[in-house]
């Protein structure tokens, strides 16, 4: 078990080294360069088009391996189920839009398919990577470490710590809202009160309900995530100021 600790990214110290490792591992998610580089190597063994296609799942697989030891199998599978849901929704919607409005997407079918494939594997990798990233840093230890830095870096670091905490808070908000939603609509995706509507009328009502539910979720998530920010800002600034004073008095 202890041997596995070596691979747990959230235990890497100091925190800036952990940050750098995360950025390096996550680079393929933001730049096409690593995929092209891998496909160039693979093209020595395979057809270049196939090499490019296979480079995307390879990168995703590498990122999953990177996150797995920290997350543990259960949490990893939880994140992956959400990632698959999101990836499929994104790709199916994009594909539908592409077929409905071909004049907007001026690209040939092959290029469009490769783009969708890349999008699919990117979403599958971004989800566990970003959640591992967000939860691997503790805002209070960042604030404590920042007291030794000079002003411009301190300011930037404080903003980073706050942003991190806000992102961490999103997870709590979503699970809280899910519980509330479950109490209101036990079937989650169907309204509780359907009345005596016939089939067609029911489908119409359901689509309308679903659309409003999405809007409600977006607003509620934003509002409940933003709600504690003023208190967080105040607390982070006090902590930073206090630690700084303490640090100077020790010197």
């Amino acid at each position: 078990m202890n041997r596995l600790n070596f691979f747990k990214i959230h235990l890497v110290k100091p925190f800036w080294l952990r940050f750098i490792i995360f950025i390096i591992v996550g680079l393929p998610l933001f730049s096409n360069f690593p995929a092209l580089f891998i496909s160039q190597i693979l093209s020595k063994f395979f057809n270049p088009e196939f090499a490019l296609i296979i480079s995307y799942p390879l990168i995703s697989f590498f990122i999953w391996l990177f996150c797995l030891p920290s997350l543990g199998l259960n949490k990893f599978l939880d994140y992956m189920s959400a990632a698959f849901l999101m990836a499929l929704t994104t790709v199916i919607t994009s594909s539908l839009l592409q077929n409905l409005f071909p004049f907007i997407f001026m690209e040939n079918a092959y290029a469009a398919s490769v783009r969708l494939l890349r999008l699919y594997f990117n979403v599958l990798a971004v989800f566990p990577w970003s959640l591992t990233f967000i939860n691997s840093f503790s805002p209070d230890s960042i604030i404590n470490a920042l007291t030794q830095l000079r002003t411009p870096f301190r300011e930037a670091g404080l903003h980073f710590a706050l942003a991190l905490r806000v992102f961490q808070h999103v997870g709590t908000v979503v699970s809280k809202l899910l519980l509330i939603w479950k109490e209101r609509y036990p079937s989650l995706l169907v309204m509780r009160h359907t009345g005596e509507n016939k089939k067609l009328k029911f489908i119409f009502a359901w689509v309308r309900w679903l659309a409003y539910s999405v809007i409600d979720w977006v607003y509620a998530s934003i509002i409940l995530t933003f709600e504690p920010i003023p208190a967080m800002v105040n607390e982070f600034e006090i902590l930073s100021e206090r630690n700084k004073k303490n640090d100077f008095s020790e010197k």
Partner: peptide
Amino acid sequence: VFQEAVSQCFALTPEILISGVFCADYEK
């Protein structure tokens, strides 16, 4: 009805909350 009644409303006002929940059931 939860302790955190405010969150339970999903940041909706009373009328919108009731209209939304019963959008397919006019009688209720």
